[in-house]
Amino acid sequence: MSILRVATYNIHKGVQGMGPSRRLEIHNLVHAVEQFDADIICLQEVRRHHRKLEKQFTRWPDLDQANYLTPDGYEAVYRTNAITRHGEHGNALLSRWPVLDSKHSDVSDHRFEQRGLLHAQLLVEGLDVHVVVVHFGLIHASRERQVQRLGEYIRRELPETAPLIVAGDFNDWGAKLHKPMADLDLRTFDSLRLPTYPSRLPLLHLDRIYVRGLRPVMAHVPHGKAWTRMSDHLPLIAELEL
């Protein structure tokens, strides 16, 4: 059977630190993404542009962050979730396999948090595999409603039997979304506790990969000093069997 290697990573807009100590990490993130050696890479908090930071950092990339992070031979898909005073950011997907189609669905629950789903249809060894990249809200009630809207989107837009991966930053501090996700026939590595946040002392399992029609084989979270510097999250990498 074919094995798909999938990674999900909240890159914190490619910038770390506060005030005078703020530093640009997007160039280090390029090497991090390459190290995943993943077939599918799901990214959150990806900048399309930011006029203020582009002036502050002399080494700000000429490309938007999704395309800047894309390894050779991969295809990038980006969709904006949030438009701010100086720019915009959202979710991205980098794929080693051909992208047949992509869509975006706004799942914002209130005006203070702009959230969205990025859906991509990939052709993997002749099989259509659907991937939804998510970044859910900070309030539990909002996350519950966003799972409901995810379910509505899946029922409306995806074939019932299509293999499906839902990956991203769920902001689910108490692992309360496992049951509503299971009600959508989406399951994760239930026996593994893989904390990804905060990166310096990971305690919370916020970043997850849920699947339907695939079998989870293994998952791990890389650790080390370099990873703690690049983002406030650690990446999660999994292998899935088609």
Score class of each variant (00 low, 15 high):
residue 2 S to F: 05
residue 5 R to C: 05
residue 8 T to H: 07
residue 14 G to H: 04
residue 17 G to D: 08
residue 17 G to L: 02
residue 18 M to D: 09
residue 22 R to N: 07
residue 24 L to T: 11
residue 30 V to F: 06
residue 30 V to S: 06
residue 32 A to E: 06
residue 33 V to W: 01
residue 33 V to P: 00
residue 36 F to Q: 02
residue 36 F to N: 11
residue 40 I to D: 12
residue 41 I to K: 00
residue 41 I to Y: 02
residue 42 C to F: 02
residue 43 L to Q: 00
residue 49 H to G: 14
residue 49 H to F: 15
residue 50 H to K: 09
residue 50 H to W: 08
residue 53 L to W: 09
residue 55 K to Y: 05
residue 56 Q to Y: 14
residue 56 Q to H: 15
residue 58 T to L: 09
residue 60 W to S: 04
residue 62 D to M: 07
residue 64 D to I: 04
residue 68 Y to A: 01
residue 69 L to I: 02
residue 70 T to Y: 02
residue 71 P to Q: 07
residue 71 P to I: 10
residue 73 G to D: 08
residue 73 G to A: 07
residue 73 G to R: 00
residue 74 Y to I: 05
residue 75 E to W: 03
residue 76 A to V: 14
residue 76 A to E: 03
residue 77 V to Y: 07
residue 82 A to F: 13
residue 83 I to F: 15
residue 83 I to H: 15
residue 85 R to S: 14
residue 87 G to L: 05
residue 88 E to G: 07
residue 91 N to K: 08
residue 97 W to Y: 12
residue 98 P to E: 05
residue 99 V to E: 06
residue 101 D to P: 00
residue 103 K to R: 15
residue 103 K to D: 15
residue 103 K to V: 06
residue 104 H to V: 15
residue 105 S to K: 11
residue 107 V to D: 06
residue 107 V to I: 15
residue 107 V to H: 06
residue 107 V to Y: 03
residue 108 S to P: 13
residue 111 R to I: 13
residue 111 R to Y: 09
residue 113 E to Q: 06
residue 114 Q to Y: 02
residue 115 R to N: 03
residue 116 G to D: 09
residue 116 G to H: 01
residue 117 L to T: 04
residue 118 L to F: 07
residue 123 L to F: 03
residue 126 G to P: 01
residue 127 L to A: 07
residue 128 D to K: 10
residue 128 D to H: 10
residue 129 V to M: 03
residue 130 H to R: 11
residue 131 V to Y: 12
residue 138 L to R: 02
residue 141 A to L: 04
residue 143 R to M: 04
residue 148 Q to R: 11
residue 151 G to V: 02
residue 151 G to P: 05
residue 154 I to L: 13
residue 154 I to A: 10
residue 156 R to Q: 12
residue 158 L to R: 12
residue 163 P to Y: 10
residue 164 L to R: 12
residue 164 L to D: 12
residue 167 A to S: 08
residue 169 D to E: 08
residue 169 D to G: 10
residue 169 D to I: 06
residue 173 W to Q: 02
residue 175 A to T: 12
residue 176 K to E: 14
residue 178 H to K: 10
residue 178 H to R: 13
residue 179 K to H: 15
residue 179 K to F: 12
residue 183 D to N: 13
residue 185 D to Q: 12
residue 186 L to T: 12
residue 186 L to I: 07
residue 187 R to L: 07
residue 187 R to H: 11
residue 191 S to M: 09
residue 192 L to N: 13
residue 192 L to Y: 14
residue 195 P to G: 03
residue 199 S to G: 00
residue 199 S to H: 00
residue 200 R to N: 07
residue 203 L to P: 00
residue 204 L to N: 01
residue 205 H to A: 14
residue 206 L to A: 13
residue 209 I to M: 04
residue 210 Y to S: 05
residue 212 R to H: 06
residue 218 M to F: 10
residue 218 M to P: 01
residue 220 H to F: 14
residue 220 H to K: 11
residue 221 V to Q: 08
residue 221 V to F: 07
residue 222 P to Q: 07
residue 225 K to E: 11
residue 230 M to R: 03
residue 232 D to R: 03
residue 233 H to K: 07
residue 234 L to A: 03
residue 235 P to E: 00
residue 239 E to L: 05
residue 241 E to Q: 11
